[in-house]
Amino acid sequence: MSKIIEGLKYSESHEWVKVEDGIAVVGVTDFAQAEMGDITYVDMPEVDDEVTAGEEFGALESVKAASDLISPVSGKVVAVNEALEDEPEKVNEDAFENWIIKVEMSDPSELDNLLDAAAYKAQIGE
């Protein structure tokens, strides 16, 4: 049974969003990291890159698979989690603790299109 945190927003493609001081902190869910298995690389955008809701902004890689990261919100990347460059396994260790990017949202109303914890839980069938 994978971990789901109440109060966060979720996308159908298994990203979570937490809003801190108007900035969207984005990561992948515990379910997603478990599906991927041992993550060997996190492909991340650069600071100041623009991301668009519903479009890819990077990828997770394991030995035998690659999975796109889909941005749940639109806006400008203000930070990337550089710790993941050398230690991608942190995402396996705690997917909610180890965020991937922070986005200055251009349209915060996009958050309303995302799932809440209960709806996400239903989506992954748990």
Partner: peptide, 12 residues
């Protein structure tokens, strides 16, 4: 580093 390759990334 096979995640770069055609059998995994296919068109990407």
């Amino acid at each position: 580093l096979q995640a770069r390759e055609q059998h995994i990334k296919r068109e990407k």
